[in-house]
Design a protein around this nucleic acid. Structure first.
Length: 269
DNA sequence: CGATTATCCTGTGCGC
DNA sequence: TGCGCACAGGATAATC
């Protein structure tokens, strides 16, 4: 669920509510939430003020005065929620960060694919990621797609190529760029690659302004439990059989590898 | 390289 | 109403 716009919306919430506040306690339950290192290491953050936040792709970064970075990845079903201390924990709450003034920041994740970890200096754990999708340049994307026969969509969701795009936004970006998701990535002309970069910026920026996409299950919510609204602007994702907003032809769902993509066959070439 | 499959989990929505 | 099954935003590894 959470792709770049959703993670960015959550990051802004964390930034506004908790930066400058001091972490009093951090408690983790369950073996899977912190699995890259001993969970006890999180105690290194106790007593430290939150200095700032960052994001690379779908990874949310938190920086602490004099301490290591705490990285959060929501994967499929993770949520970060602000809560008043002592209020009831919703099911699948796996971590609670209690701050001195602003209350608690809670990590909730039914499917437990998400994780928290302290990054090593220089963040080698994120070294495999390509450039952030909001910052990528046409030259970078051209170089990454050159010679590749894989479908464009497969590379757009490959975090080593471009960090931050998932299933929803890949389809929306391909539609916005007027390109079929199953086009061989290496067959794009330079101006088409530039169009993809422009479509990526446009779609992601618009979605961030709408506070992300919440699908039918309403799993994605921001820090305050509010839903995003960009799903109302999806042109193709989830709209199989409905008329294309551009030409009126029905949206199709086509197989791409093991997954599927939503697209308009008459608008995307 | 690429494509295919499996895996980690829970929740839901559907068909019967 | 209840049951079983397919499927879901992600990432990664293994295999051919």
């Amino acid at each position: 669920m959470p792709e770049l716009p959703e993670v960015e919306t959550v990051r802004r919430g964390v930034d506004g509510l908790f930066v400058g506040d001091t972490l009093v306690d951090i408690a983790v339950s369950g073996a899977r939430t912190v699995r890259r290192h001993p969970p006890e290491r999180l105690a290194e953050l106790r007593g430290r003020p939150l200095a700032g936040t960052g994001r690379h792709g779908k990874y949310l970064l938190t920086r602490w005065d004099g301490g290591p970075e705490l990285v959060v990845h929501l994967r499929m079903s993770g949520q970060l929620l602000a809560a008043a201390p002592g209020t009831g924990l919703v099911p699948h709450t796996h971590a609670v960060l209690r701050f001195a003034a602003a209350g608690e920041l809670r990590f909730v994740d039914p499917r437990t694919f998400g994780e928290l970890f302290l990054a090593q200096p220089g963040r080698p754990e994120l070294g495999h990621l390509g450039p952030d999708a909001l910052a990528v340049t046409p030259a970078q994307l051209s170089a990454a797609l050159a010679g590749r026969r894989a479908p464009l969509k497969c590379l757009l969701v490959d975090q080593r190529v471009l960090a931050g795009i998932g299933n929803i936004y890949a389809d929306e970006i391909c539609f916005r760029a007027g390109l079929r998701p199953d086009r061989a990535a290496g067959s794009l002309r330079p101006e088409e690659v530039a169009t993809v970069v422009g479509a990526t910026r446009a779609v992601l920026t618009e979605s961030i302004a709408a506070r992300g996409s919440s699908l039918a299950d309403q799993q994605y919510r921001d820090l305050f439990g509010a839903l995003g609204s960009y799903q109302l602007n999806h042109r193709v994702y989830g709209r199989v059989g409905l008329p294309c907003p551009s030409c009126g032809q029905p949206i199709e769902r086509v197989p791409i590898g093991a997954r599927r993509a939503f697209m308009c066959a008459s608008c995307q070439a």
